[in-house]
């Protein structure tokens, strides 16, 4: 699944773009149906990712105590 490599926000952005596509007066019904399918699939993937993905915590290695001491008198 190509969605696996995408971040949740990318997926949400894509979903948003699809939803915005519908904000027009001259909807082509065939295109609309395929866009809707795409949107529903994305929605499903997003919900799945929300349920399973983990947040990553990276502790910065820099020593801020040492950095802070440097410019002092």
């Amino acid at each position: 699944m190509p969605e696996k490599s995408k971040s949740l926000r990318q997926l949400l952005d894509e979903f948003e773009t699809i939803v915005e596509w519908f904000d027009r007066d001259d909807l082509d019904i065939d295109q609309a149906i395929s866009k809707f399918e795409e949107g529903s699939n994305l929605a499903e993937t997003i919900k799945q990712q929300l349920a399973t993905a983990k947040n990553k915590i990276e502790i910065v290695k820099a020593d801020f105590a040492a950095k802070a001491a440097q410019p002092k008198e």
Binding site: L8, Q49, T52, A68
Partner: peptide, 22 residues
């Protein structure tokens, strides 16, 4: 929320050297 990255700078948040570390 899920799938985001927190880059954490561990600093003192109290005491004289805290502001400079932040």
């Amino acid at each position: 929320f899920s799938g985001l990255t927190l880059q954490v700078a561990n600093v003192q948040v109290q005491g004289d050297s805290a502001p400079q570390q932040i």
